[in-house]
Simulated scan of single mutants.
Amino acid sequence: MAEDADGHRAPLLPGTEESPGHPVLNFLGKAAASVLPIASVVVGALYLGQCPHQPLLPCYLLVGGSAALLFLLLTCLPCGDGTDPPQLSPGTRGWRAAFLLFLFAWFIAGNVWVYSIYPPEYKDPKNPDFCSRPLYLFAFWVTTLVYVGLGVALLAALGILGCLVLLRARLPWLQRGDAYP
């Protein structure tokens, strides 16, 4: 931020907003991101008690979906201290870290519950290895899609890093030892 002649703060680039994105796009992004957690809560609630082989599987979907929705809801609340750029208070950072640690631990537990019973018995509900087919397949694919998403993000990050390394080697003003303009 720069100050004008009257001492008012003005953005360095005219026309830039304080917000990183348009509010409508932020809302649409969060609405799209909430579809899978809502589906997880619904499937977990509908099939509660329908997997005797692994009774915690519906709970995995219920708690994981609810926690993801709560996390999305908390991102809508202002959490800065009013400074520019906003600084998170230590308490906010601590709760956010604890929440993310819980989500990580819950995801690991869900991996154990989902992958340890593969493949369950789908046809005979009296069989002790029975698990409702829609419940199990939904939990399986939700868990697997998290790994697919992480893999795609890792490949994208490595690709960007590779491009930056190549650009640094090819552009004369980015050579080692040169001062950045």
Rank of each mutant, 00 (worst) to 15 (best):
F138N: 05
W173E: 15
P128S: 08
E3W: 15
Y115S: 03
A179C: 09
L77T: 07
Y122N: 01
D81I: 02
A33E: 15
T16Q: 13
L70H: 04
Y136W: 13
P55C: 05
L155W: 15
P128C: 05
L73K: 01
P125N: 05
S89C: 08
A97C: 14
D4V: 03
V152H: 14
L145K: 00
G110V: 02
K30R: 09
S40C: 11
Q50C: 06
I117R: 09
A139E: 00
V35H: 15
L73G: 14
D6N: 12
L62I: 13
A32H: 08
L36V: 13
L46T: 10
L62H: 10
D84E: 10
H22N: 10
L62A: 06
P120R: 02
F27I: 03
F102N: 02
Q175C: 14
L61S: 04
L56M: 13
Q87T: 05
V148F: 11
P58T: 06
L72F: 12
Y147H: 11
A109Q: 09
C76Y: 07
G64N: 05
L61Q: 04
S116P: 00
W141F: 12
L61T: 05
A45T: 11
L155M: 12
L135D: 07
V114N: 03
N111P: 00
E17G: 01
L70F: 09
K123L: 09
D81T: 02
I117M: 07
A45S: 15
R170A: 15
V42E: 03
V41D: 03
P11H: 14
S19F: 14
L167M: 13
W106R: 11
C51S: 13
S34D: 03
L25S: 05
T16C: 10
A68P: 01
W95G: 04
V142L: 09
W95F: 15
P52L: 06
P125G: 03
R96S: 08
A2G: 04
E3Y: 15
P181L: 06
H53V: 09
W113K: 11
F99W: 14
L150A: 10
Q50N: 12
T143L: 04
P128R: 02
Y147W: 06
L73Y: 12
P125S: 08
R168P: 08
G64P: 01
L62S: 01
L154N: 11
V112H: 06
L88N: 10
A5P: 08
E18L: 12
T75I: 03
K126R: 13
F130T: 00
N111T: 12
A45C: 13
P172M: 02
P120G: 02
Q50R: 14
G29M: 06
G159N: 11
R168Y: 15
G7L: 05
P58N: 11
R9D: 08
L25F: 15
G149H: 11
V165F: 12
L77Q: 06
Y147Q: 05
L69S: 05
L12Q: 07
V42G: 07
F107Q: 10
V148E: 12
P55K: 06
Q54T: 09
C51G: 10
L70T: 03
T143F: 01
G110K: 02
L101H: 10
F107L: 11
P125K: 08
